[in-house]
């Protein structure tokens, strides 16, 4: 049986660490390009989806 954490923030990717607080993996990047790439990698690894919070913070959530 496959067990996965769903509907929860698995990781956060952002250039702005001051905007995020919490008990999950926060990946801090240097620019937008790196953010996009890291978000893509994480989404593929976690089989999850990248959501844009429109303030420079991207979250990875499995649905």
């Amino acid at each position: 049986m496959e067990i996965a954490i769903k509907e929860q923030i698995l990781a956060v990717v952002t250039e702005y660490p001051e905007k995020v607080q919490g008990n999950f993996g926060i990946f801090i990047t240097k620019n937008d390009q790196e953010t996009q790439h890291l978000a893509l990698l994480l989404s593929r690894i976690l089989k999850a989806m990248v959501h844009d919070l429109e303030n420079g913070v991207y979250i990875i959530v499995k649905h």
Partner: peptide, 8 residues
């Protein structure tokens, strides 16, 4: 839905 990746 909300999509974060520019390529997508």
């Amino acid at each position: 839905m909300n999509i974060g990746l520019e390529d997508s």
